[in-house]
Amino acid sequence: MKHAVVAPFVHAAVSAALLAAVALLLPSCDSTPRERQEAVREGAREIDTAADKAAAVLKRAGNRAARFDSVSRQRSRQPLDDAATKAFNQELLGTSAEVEQLTAQTIEPAYTQLLRNTRDKRRTWTQRDWDYATAVFRRLNDRYRAVRLDLPARNELRIKALQAEFTALETGRDLNDLRDAVRDEPVAR
């Protein structure tokens, strides 16, 4: 995950090093050994400068990622508020909010309702809102495990697809937040 965020910075450093090497090779045909030696020194300085810049960018990105991870862990250690959990449960599941009462016939519509509401609201949710939504999703998954053996295979497949979509939406949000946290602001020149 971190490699995808950092890869553009590493690619830029490697590109700079290759350009410096090509610049060294082209004029070497018509130059003296002393001129080539100076060109090599200059190229090495350029490569060192590019490497130093890339290292600084990677260090800043690493520090930001660590800070993001620390804040995320601290947030996840905080217990969820029971009233807010009930409100999210009602908001996301509607008439299926009594999860313990769901049967093999009513659990698929509950998942469908959860995903419909998640798709509608996800762009405005904070990470804490996702914590509450995930708690609702987990309760629904617990009930699914209790009634799974009574489900027809086609319903089970639909539920698996809905579970995968919820996980993908949540993971996408986490990745966007991490990307935003480690993004390197352009340096004013």
Rank of each mutant, 00 (worst) to 15 (best):
T85Y: 06
A50P: 08
A56V: 00
I107A: 00
I107F: 08
L157K: 15
N117K: 14
T118C: 05
A56G: 14
T171V: 06
L92E: 06
R116T: 14
D81S: 12
P33G: 05
G62F: 02
E185I: 06
F88M: 14
W125A: 01
R45W: 08
D150S: 13
Q101A: 13
E165P: 00
R183F: 10
R189G: 15
V187R: 14
S70E: 09
K53H: 09
H11Q: 12
D174S: 11
T112E: 11
L149W: 06
L140P: 06
S31N: 10
L19E: 15
E35S: 09
L93N: 02
V22K: 14
F137C: 00
K160C: 00
A44Y: 05
T106L: 04
V187E: 13
V57S: 11
F88P: 00
E46L: 14
A84E: 15
G94T: 05
E108F: 09
N89V: 01
R60E: 12
R64V: 03
A104K: 12
L149D: 13
L151F: 05
Q101F: 06
N63A: 06
N141G: 12
T49W: 00
L24N: 11
R45K: 10
N176C: 05
S72A: 13
V187H: 10
R139C: 04
S72Y: 03
T134H: 10
R116Q: 14
Q127N: 07
A168D: 15
R138C: 02
Q78I: 15
T103K: 07
A65G: 03
V14I: 14
Q78Y: 00
D120L: 14
N141E: 12
V22D: 08
H11K: 15
A97K: 14
F88Q: 08
V71D: 11
V40P: 03
W130E: 08
D30T: 10
L93H: 06
Y111N: 05
D177M: 01
W125N: 01
A110S: 08
K59N: 01
A110P: 04
F137S: 07
A55L: 13
K121T: 10
A16F: 03
S15H: 09
A181D: 04
D129S: 13
A161P: 02
D150P: 00
R67S: 11
